[in-house]
């Protein structure tokens, strides 16, 4: 029986991952800001087959609460097989360009808070000498683009942090996985018209679970984003500056 902690458990992708583990009768520890929604999800996952479902409220930007939160989760579950960090927000880029406090808040939510949580969790994982840490970042962290570089900067910061963390924890047998989804059809992106590049959260969840079980370190989700991002990263600046992306 697997023990899973999910932070940002009400997000569309996290919910779908939780369902996949619930069917396999896992013990789930769900952490999120929206507690009424957490209760609905708890009921749902219990019926789907989860062995136990614990919930805890959390505010990503209350950094001083993170240590207790992580400790409680590890104490409740005993051994932790998977820690999935999935919380985040999609900032209004234009607002961030004029309001530095807004930019900082978004960097905190999408970047600093994740690193804070991982710092506490990494120590625990290192002690237990087994387990997986998966973090949902974004292809937006690969190259800054005018349309969302504040979000991209936060996600890119987490990705680089994860590279180092993966190297460090490989010594103690802990698997670190950075998941970089492309376009995912979730409430966060409800405003967009969806084309062929968009993936459903169910699909993304299946990919995540598979990569966790195979101890893969491939980030792009779905995999074709590797091709797209390789191209985007190598477009020379003088061309890049001329396009709207």
């Amino acid at each position: 029986m697997q023990n899973i902690i999910i932070i940002g458990a009400t997000s569309a992708m996290a919910k779908e991952v939780a369902k996949l583990y619930a069917i396999e009768k896992a013990n789930l520890y769900l952490i999120a800001r929206d507690t009424p929604k957490l209760d609905t999800i708890k009921q749902d996952l219990t019926i789907r087959g989860a062995n136990t479902v614990h919930t805890a409220p959390f505010d990503a930007n209350q950094f001083n609460s993170h240590q207790t939160l992580i400790e409680q989760a590890f104490n409740t579950l005993g051994r932790v097989d998977v820690l999935l960090v999935a919380h985040g927000s999609l900032p209004n880029q234009e607002l961030c360009q004029t309001d530095s406090m807004k930019a900082i808040e978004e960097l905190n939510t999408n970047g600093v808070s994740v690193i804070s949580i991982l710092t506490h969790a990494a120590t625990k994982m290192e002690q237990q000498k087994t387990g997986n840490i998966t973090v949902i970042t974004s292809v937006a962290g690969d190259r800054g683009r005018q349309s969302n570089y504040v979000y991209g900067a936060a996600k890119g910061m987490v990705s680089i942090f994860l590279q180092g963390l993966a190297q460090r924890l490989s010594k103690s047998g802990v698997h670190v996985l950075d998941i970089k989804p492309g376009f995912v059809d979730t409430p966060m992106t409800a405003e967009f018209d969806k084309g062929a590049l968009w993936a459903k959260p169910e699909k993304v969840a299946q990919i995540i679970k598979k990569r966790i079980s195979k101890k893969s370190s491939f980030s792009y989700t779905p995999a074709f984003w590797f091709v797209i991002m390789t191209i985007i990263k190598f477009v020379p600046k003088f061309i890049f500056d001329k396009v709207k992306l």
Binding site: T40, I41, Q43, D44, I47, R48, P187
Partner: peptide, 9 residues
């Protein structure tokens, strides 16, 4: 689509 939870069984 967002209202897709089981309530009881």
């Amino acid at each position: 689509e967002e209202m897709n939870h089981f309530i009881s069984f």
